[in-house]
Design a protein around this nucleic acid. Structure first.
Length: 150
DNA sequence: GCCAACGTTGGC
DNA sequence: GCCAACGTTGGC
């Protein structure tokens, strides 16, 4: 089992939105490394930190879980979608996604500022300068450390 | 809204 | 295959 962190802008889709919908297709990822993680390494049941980005208080807001195997992101075929990719085809889809299901909100948002203060977390891609990966692995040690902060 | 950092595109 | 230009991410 692998652990993950997935970013979402709460103005677009927040942990509360996931709590209400229970389950969501994680569409719109258009970065090859993030896609590869979803396609090649994620397994149903893997735990996921739900991270709020591009907002007043960026940080980890809740826990989700991978809820499907990877399958083609339908938005890539939809000319009306902002995620439409004319270079992709149904025969050879470029972008894959997984479904994610709600597990729980954290008791409080563990902010990016707080994460930065812990040396045990210094290796997280999230904290590396310039890293923008929206789907990234979290080690078991990092996962446990962060949950203990809650 | 700014801008640093990064990934992708496309001309050559 | 190089690399400049461009678009995007995301913290601040």
């Amino acid at each position: 089992m692998n652990h993950w962190l997935m970013k979402s802008e709460p103005d677009t889709f927040s942990i509360d939105d996931l709590a209400r919908k229970r389950r969501e297709a994680w569409d719109g990822v258009r970065n090859y490394q993030a896609r590869n993680y979803m396609r090649d390494a994620m397994k149903t049941g893997d735990p996921v930190f739900f991270y709020h980005s591009s907002c007043a208080a960026p940080g980890i807001a809740g826990i989700a879980a991978v809820a499907s195997a990877a399958y083609p992101d339908p938005t890539q075929f939809d000319p009306r979608s902002p995620y439409f990719d004319p270079g992709s085809s149904r025969d050879d889809p470029r972008w894959m996604l997984v479904d994610v299901k709600f597990v729980r909100k954290l008791k409080r948002i563990i902010t990016l500022d707080e994460l930065k203060t812990h040396r045990a977390l210094a290796a997280m891609p999230l904290l590396q300068r310039g890293t923008r990966l929206s789907v990234q692995p979290v080690t078991k040690a990092q996962w446990d450390f962060i949950l203990a902060l809650e």
